[in-house]
Design a protein around this nucleic acid. Structure first.
Lengths: 258, 258
DNA sequence: ACCCGAATGTTAAAATAATTACAAACAGAA
DNA sequence: TTCTGTTTGTAATTATTTTAACATTCGGGT
């Protein structure tokens, strides 16, 4: 293993963990601690790292670094991150000025929220902390949040009053995520509490846009909330199997491959 | 300086610097390193920090926010910041395990939210982005958010459904902020939309705790929402004029001077 | 005022990391 | 191959931190 390769590995490890003992790095790389120290000298000189003899650091938060919003779904347990990012960016391109959007919870929709173009004078309705966190700073946008009790794993808020609030609104476009997309058994999610909200969202919106990376196709999850044919538009990635593409074309669904 | 106050300061310092030697923290706080260590034990247990004996951390990002939660009321246009911090820290000390709190919007309450001690198993009800942003990472807490439309200057969300949600809940303690505190004309705020929410909050809570720095005393603002006598407890700073203190004593209000 | 428990400070001993110097392995060129 | 400069590993020294035990202070309650 060459020096620059080690440097890269070290930087990766640091970004994942936010802070590491030198011993751990050495063990992980199978080199002596002196080698690691000498590598670190370079990183410190170029201001990419900071040595600390003994002390504290913030608990590792995968989102701290690359400019992401502080409340973000843990990317460690998130797969298909690159696909999701591309899907979110593509979907953001569907947004038009004056739109009223409903943005569902999820990591894909988080990418969408982060990539909303400025100066659109939108109304944004959402109900998850990562979404509001990513979109609240947009200027000239009306922000509406449907409250309730927070679910820690999805950062989603849900309550009867939140549903009422969604019902009272009308959106031009709803961006909905899913954990499973199946042609016979419909579109499904992982948690019972999501179901009612997603159904309400679909009912309250003109265009219904499904965001789901290719790994979700063919999967059936526990909680059913819609038929695939209920959606006007599906955004997924190029990894989706051809027969799914065909089936969606037959259903007359507008399909985007990010 | 109380324990929870130190914890708050330590968290602030950590967010600013991304990693600190214990010695530095101790010097900065004017306490022994053992005290800091014992404080850190708590933070580590609640997964907010990580100890590191010797190692590296990422270099502090210069462009990042100055230690405040990303959604935070603009401290540039905020005055009395130090007093507000002290008030928030003191008020956080009033929190007891198992409490159900309602936390109002405002910059003082933001300091409160940032300094909530860990391991309290609280239920936290709020309706402002800076408050949820500051408190959502607390482990073992139920988070409830009353949604609605966001008001950009206060980061507060408000709607009929949000009010309903608050009415449906019962809190042990409500921490309410105010823009004006006057003995004849009562407690006032700046915006009409705050009025109904604050009134509802006060009605839904057992203890009603007013947080207001000394500059608010004697002021009358446009929107009246409560008599001062409706509050059990007032937390302000030492800068408050003596005759206000007397008047509050006469009313039987428990008074704390931060 | 007194006692008591909790919180904080002090000290010394033990563990661990940082530093230094030097030896060994390695790679490229004459 | 042999030389040479670079990189890596080892070992001993030094400096720090961590841990633990004990002393002290502080604040609340009787």
């Amino acid at each position: 293993m060459k020096k620059h390769e080690r440097l890269g590995r070290i930087k990766e490890m640091l970004q994942q963990e936010n802070g590491l003992p030198i011993q751990t790095i050495a063990r992980h790389l199978g080199v002596s601690h002196m080698t690691v120290r000498r590598d670190l000298e370079l990183l410190v000189e170029s201001n990419e790292a900071k040595l600390i003899h003994g002390g504290v650091i913030l608990a590792p938060r995968s989102d701290q670094h690359n400019g992401y919003s502080p409340y973000s779904l843990n990317s460690a347990e998130t797969v298909m991150t690159e696909e999701k990012r591309r899907i979110g960016i593509l979907a953001a391109g569907l947004i038009e000025p004056q739109d009223t959007l409903i943005i569902d919870s999820g990591s894909t929709t988080e990418f969408l929220a982060r990539n909303i173009p400025p100066d659109m004078r939108l109304t944004i309705i959402c109900y998850a902390l990562n979404i509001i966190s990513a979109s609240a700073s947009l200027a000239d946008c009306r922000q509406v949040f449907a409250g309730g009790t927070m679910h820690v794993n999805t950062l989603m808020f849900e309550s009867p009053e939140g549903l009422e609030l969604i019902k009272r609104h009308r959106a031009t476009k709803a961006f909905v995520s899913a954990a499973g997309v199946h042609f016979d058994f419909g579109v499904t999610c992982l948690n019972a509490y999501e179901r009612e909200t997603k159904r309400t969202v679909i009912e309250s919106s003109d265009q219904k846009i499904l965001l789901a990376d290719s790994s979700k196709f063919g999967l059936i999850r526990s909680d059913y909330f819609a038929e695939l044919s209920h959606f006007d538009t599906v955004v997924t990635d190029k990894g989706v199997a051809p027969h799914f593409v065909e089936q969606m074309n037959e259903l007359g669904i507008r399909l985007f491959l990010a």
